[in-house]
Design a protein around this nucleic acid. Structure first.
Lengths: 108, 108
DNA sequence: AACAAGTACCTTGCACGGCAAGGTACCATG
DNA sequence: CATGGTACCTTGCCGTGCAAGGTACTTGTT
């Protein structure tokens, strides 16, 4: 029950984090998943539906590239609309985080 | 689609916030909902299932009290287990928030 | 040649929890 | 007696992360 907090916390934030990662350079899902797994414990099964959604929403575009080790990688690249989404999501995040901090108050 | 971010963000955090509010004094659902609605846009329909869950989990206990205006209020009071849950959730939150901040990096 | 292990892609079914909308009932004011 | 505020609660829906499973290519080991 307690560990479900972390699961729930991720919801909504993961997309923003992926956008932020991509803003620093194109990347492919498997690598994104690895980084996110380390940072916030994201599972691999999460990334592919997420990337698909983001592509459908026009936030990213894709291209294939050979890798030398394993199957070809599908790279994701931020679109302008994706960059805008990142900006607005970051500001929403900050508002939210500030509100939470205020509620927690001295409980920290 | 963008507004779903805020919805998703709330998941998991609301329980912690309610615990934090209760740590400052007993309160009843309707008032908690009003405060949370102002702070993070929580809907009223969210609070009752949440309080029920928290009671089932032994995080809060309840008692009734007349109100003079409307039906009697059902006050919620933090249990020891609830106070412990608050502490651990807050530290999880801080870890999480730090991780997110790190990923966002200079995107802020 | 055969096999495991690593990389990299993807899908299916499930569980959780917030929300909108709706409903009940009590009290005061007009 | 009707309106509006307080305060309780339920139902059904939807989004999304997860675990588990599956494919296929490459490299290293036996």
């Amino acid at each position: 029950m307690t560990e479900s907090l972390q699961i729930q916390l991720k919801k909504g934030v993961l997309e923003m984090c992926v956008l932020a990662l991509l803003s620093k350079g194109d990347n492919y899902a498997y690598d994104i998943a690895s980084r996110m797994a380390e940072a916030v414990g994201m599972g691999e099964g999460t990334i592919y539906p997420l990337m698909r959604r983001m592509q459908n929403d026009g936030l990213v575009s894709t291209y294939l590239q050979e890798s030398g080790s394993g199957p070809p990688r599908k790279y994701y690249k931020l679109t302008k609309s994706g960059a805008n989404a990142l900006k607005s999501q970051v500001s929403e995040w900050i508002v939210f985080e500030t509100a939470v901090r205020k509620i927690l108050g001295d409980a920290t």
